[in-house]
Design a protein around this nucleic acid. Structure first.
Lengths: 197, 197
DNA sequence: GCTATGATTGAAACACGTTCTAGATTCGGA
DNA sequence: TCCGAATCTAGAACGTGTTTCAATCATAGC
């Protein structure tokens, strides 16, 4: 199974790539989408601007890839533990709650990554797909509840997708300042209740 | 009831505003988000660049406002007629199907407006809210089915919001080339079935 | 009609994403 | 060890969103 970190290239290249993504996350965390300026990323990663563009063909690719790495981390962590809760509803809300709280603590970072994800066009399809897979994996795991994954039914998968969609929209509402983090949790609760009944 | 077209200013100003939005839609229709260049909009609307910025403080505001005007039009039209279908599910799918078909016919326009909507930040909250209201009004009307709107229940409203969220995500998938228009319809069908049961 | 005030214009200038170029540097293979 | 190819660097340059400014125009109130 080759699902995780397989990055091609020499050691030095893997290092550069890591420095670039680290700088991206740091800048995003400090000032959101606008603070992630390509020249600043290149400087902070000790890399020339041209090199940055050789690794990531656009700011959007860069940010969505960074988002993917964060999700990778979160999903890996969630995979290691049994999600608490007696019902699927409780377990899903637990995962979503934990995630929302985490995002809330880094609003600038969340804004940067979410907006990049939203703005992405067709050329970023692959990176976006990676994120989608991780997200659905997390929710599916929560519905299951056990660490031993049973095969999810078609309906399960449909429900997971809808939950993911609602989560994305809610996140968008929060990022654009139309709703509060509480509203995000509330609307997720309503949606999950409607779906997992 | 002051729900519709109330635009302040002199006649000449209303005219300018209309020309600007017309030019925006025309450019978006012809070449999508990238083709809506502020200098081009100003030229086509016979307006100075500075004037364009006096009317709309950014490209995003401009596009989201244009989206609002299109929704206004669509919602007004949908309001005038009884939605066909025996069940809420059928009626909602009818409205979503008609809308999706319409969007499919103008993919560049859809791409431009959707991406602007997605990329919007907090400063565009008001314009975005307008769009949200129109969208939920259309779906609510479809659930109702009658031209005489009865008061929707809390659950109705929650369902409508979830449907709107899923629709937005599906649209995003289509715009970014990850899914086909058929997929949009299919995923809406699944979501609506799950919700209106 | 005249004037003050605000709106509009045209054009320059700036910011940041992106591209391009010419010269180092690195690295794998003979 | 040396060569050629790929990669990296520094920096200039370009495109488009946005800002700014001086000059002109339109209009409401006298």
């Amino acid at each position: 199974m080759t699902s995780t970190t397989e990055t091609p290239g020499s050691n030095a290249q893997r290092e550069r790539r890591r420095r670039i993504l680290d700088a991206t996350i740091a800048l995003a965390d400090s000032g959101g989408y606008d603070a992630v300026q390509m020249r600043a990323v290149a400087d902070n990663a000790d890399v020339a601007l041209g090199t940055l563009y050789r690794y990531f063909p656009s700011k959007i690719h860069l940010l969505v890839t960074a988002l993917g790495r964060e999700f990778e981390r979160a999903e890996a962590q969630s995979r290691t533990r049994v999600v608490p809760g007696d019902t699927a509803h409780q377990r899903v809300m637990h995962v979503l709650g934990v995630t929302t709280t985490a995002l809330q603590k880094q609003p600038e970072l969340t804004e940067a990554l979410t907006r990049a994800f939203m703005f992405a066009d067709a050329s970023v399809a692959e990176e976006i797909h990676v994120v989608g897979v991780k997200l659905t994996a997390m929710i599916t795991h929560a519905i299951d509840g056990t660490d031993e994954a049973r095969e999810p039914t078609d309906e399960d998968m449909a429900i997971v997708r809808v939950i993911g969609d609602v989560w994305l929209s809610a996140l968008m509402g929060w990022v654009t300042g139309r709703t509060s983090a509480d509203d995000v949790t509330k609307s997720m609760d309503v949606a999950v209740k409607l779906l997992l009944r």
